[in-house]
């Protein structure tokens, strides 16, 4: 790759939209993925994740906005782009008349970065029998074969649409290890999944899509610095000025003299714990702010694109 391409982000979307008549599959989506990122795409079914990926690869023509993948506009030259990208579709289907070995050979020959030996090695790691004809493979076996096809070429950018669908937990773990291996080799990965724990384990950035819109972006490092505490109290809780940018509070009245308080925190816990220790609280529960909480909030429409991860704004209103 040229040095110019190195300075550019791997993916840059600007107001990307896709309409089908009155239906808007993707609306005004702006994203940036840097070199070495493992970027997670989250969202419910029909949120626009696959539409976004398919536009990036040139399968769909955008109706608005533009994007560049490794400096290449897919509308202008999708072939050059796909030379730099390996892509696993959400529902990967392979030629049924071929045997597993034939499929690996065919796709490794088709791609300039293709490497049959590496694809075979991955197939072995996934415990796949490549002597079987695709037509006689189970859904899981076909998924493994597709993974061996896609993870074979050492492209700079790897897009995986639900890579662990139909796989057993052991193989899932293996796939995630391979994703991390790709990252360690300097590759950039975009990963779409419904399994939040996978995203938590592998990604350093996450984007949430909802109803075709980019609802929220999050750096996982910031999420790991966020916690939620719930407790019961009889007195009013007031956040000291020094912590006001790190703490947000939601209070729900339970009875005449009892309230439930929810304290969302971000950043270093040490000063917050010192403050919390002075409060008259009981039944205290402290938990890390998991991706599930963010996902539920996004799903419920309580996030806008403007909301940032570092913001201590409440994610839920009780």
């Amino acid at each position: 790759m040229s040095s110019e391409a190195d300075t550019e982000p791997v993916l840059l979307c600007n107001g990307l939209s896709k309409r089908y008549g009155a239906f808007c599959a993707l609306s005004d989506c702006s994203l940036r993925v840097e070199h070495g990122d493992v970027f997670g795409l989250l969202g419910p079914n029909g949120a626009g994740k696959t539409t976004l990926i398919r536009i990036l690869l040139g399968f769909l023509h955008p109706t608005g906005g533009n994007c560049r993948v490794l400096g290449i506009d897919p509308v202008v030259d999708s072939v050059a782009l796909r030379r730099q990208v390996a892509y696993l579709p959400g529902d990967a289907r392979l030629p049924r008349h071929m045997k597993g070995e034939g499929v690996l050979k065919f796709f490794s020959e088709m791609h300039p970065f293709g490497e049959l030996e590496r694809s075979r090695r991955i197939a072995d790691q996934l415990e796949l029998n490549t002597k079987t004809r695709v037509a006689f493979m189970s859904t899981g076996m076909r998924q493994k074969l597709a993974l061996a096809v896609v993870l074979g070429p050492q492209t700079p950018f790897l897009i995986l649409d639900e890579p662990t669908a139909n796989l057993d937990p052991t193989v899932r773990a293996m796939v995630l290890r391979l994703v991390m291996e790709a990252r360690d080799n300097g590759r950039t990965v975009m990963l779409s999944s419904h399994v939040l724990s996978e995203i938590e384990d592998t990604c350093n950035k996450v984007a949430f899509l909802r109803k075709g819109r980019l609802a929220h972006e999050l750096k996982m490092s910031e999420l790991f610095q966020r916690h939620r505490m719930t407790a019961l109290t009889s007195a009013e809780v007031v956040v000291p000025d020094a912590l006001s940018d790190q703490v947000s509070i939601q209070t729900t009245r339970l009875s005449e003299n009892q309230h439930r308080v929810q304290i969302d925190t971000s950043g270093d816990l040490a000063p917050i714990l010192t403050w919390v220790n002075t409060l008259p609280l009981s039944h205290v529960r402290f938990e890390p702010f998991g991706l599930r909480t963010v996902y539920d909030s996004v799903h419920a429409g309580k996030f806008s694109q403007a909301t940032t991860a570092s913001s201590p704004e409440p994610l839920e209103t009780l």
Binding site: L57, R82, P89, L94, M110
Partner: peptide
């Protein structure tokens, strides 16, 4: 219909 076009066109061919 067979769903194989996606994998084929994911390769660098026009």
């Amino acid at each position: 219909g067979r769903g194989t076009l996606e994998m084929v066109l994911a390769q660098p061919i026009s």
